[in-house]
Amino acid sequence: MTNQVQDLRDTIRKAITSQRSKIVTPLSSLLAVEDAIGYVPREAVEEVAKLTESTVNDVWGVASFYTNFRFTPPAEHTVEVCWGPSCHVLGAPSVLKAILGHLKLTTEGEAADGGITFKYNTCLGACAQAPVMSIDHHLVGRVKAEEALKWVRRLHEESGAGAVRHIGSHGRDEDA
């Protein structure tokens, strides 16, 4: 076993053994892994199976059921656009189209250069501010296609740790 794999397993074990909830299940453990490293690698399926005394197949059945799990490492940045009805009504399709076009994607996935993961979200929970998108889990409401593009472009250009902090510390209107 290489050290890298060993490290990954250690991180995973730590994530699944230090869950807050008293009840540890395959699902809760997978969510903990997703929170810790952003995706569910094969090793996580195995470790969760061991911890919860189930088989990898059972765990995989759970992981593949819920749409919030991903199985490859995410890109540095994650952009999500809500496509719930309220957002849809108020222009999410044009936001989606603009971002997909910019990232040269046809559906959700990683942009070619690997810097951005793009996802659809069924509801980000802020319907009143529709259309809503989320950039590295930071919500932006009442977003227009051009504005969304500006965010994505910035992420693209500033691919680096700084970009996240930048969004967290500035208001959207400031940038508009």
């Binding site: 189930s54 088989t55 990898v56 197949n57 059972d58 995989w60 593949s64 059921f65």
Partner: peptide
């Protein structure tokens, strides 16, 4: 539990963890 349901809704099928061979699946 060497096989399980994978995916869901219209794509739901029977399979193994990550589609691996039955040899590995238990």
């Amino acid at each position: 539990s060497a096989i399980t349901f994978v995916e869901r809704a219209g794509r739901s099928l029977v399979g193994t963890s990550r589609g691996t061979s039955l040899l590995q699946s238990g």
